[in-house]
Amino acid sequence: MHSERASLGLKIAAAAGLLFMHLPILLIFAYAFTTEDKSYQWPPPGLTLKWFGVTWARPDVWEALSLSLRVAAISTVIALILGTLCAAAVARTRFFGREAISLLVILPIALPGIITGISLRSAFNLADIPFSFWTIVLGHATFCVVVVYNNAVARFRRTSGSLVEASMDLGANAFQTFRYVILPNISTALLAGGMLAFALSFDEVIVTTFTAGQQQTLPIWMLEELVRPRQRPVTNVVAMVVVLVTFLPILGAYYLTRGTDTVAGQGK
């Protein structure tokens, strides 16, 4: 462990960096309370809570929020199932093309979203698939699977393979082994991966613009609102909600995966 103290200059630089990253977010929050609704004026001429009521009463907000939550939930479920299965295969067994598959699974998150979006859109067009809720879900699942896969594969690698054999040796069949040994050992990784996947899906814009039809997810709705100056602080109220909805799961994921650096099932 380092015992030396950071110099004053370093402390100031660190503080400045953190402020630079987080002050703008507070600014968004402040505008949610402004009385002025045409342009963002600083300082706000007055403070009001009326935009919370206005937002509450707007059906388009609710539609967008509900769509985003449903898309995120279903993409996450798909990612949890496919990501875990894929991670188990890559971490546990050796087969021809294993490294290639490992790379291909991670690729969607490395590719720019706009490429994923365009390619999915042309593929949907070619296959004559009409844009719908499910095309959005598919688009999101491409990168949600990666997040779950990455978390799960790391945990599988840190879980000793002999645990599965020990369970079988003690009389448990494959299902019982999964239920009583594998799942408890990877559950926090899955929860963390799932939460990250949910958060990623919830604020995704680029892929969604290419894979959604007439429907608007919450981030897309916000983008449209910014272009049309009408009741602007409503966007800020929604932004606050989005920050909270995204921030809480990420915080949860952080706490759940702390302190799990030791290899599970290692005896020595």
Binding site: S160, L163, E165, A166, D169, G171, N173, A264, G265
Partner: peptide
Amino acid sequence: VPPYRRPVNTVFQDYALFPH
């Protein structure tokens, strides 16, 4: 006969105790 139906039990080299 699969491992879970054999009348044998194993003490593993790395012990393989369930960490949870």
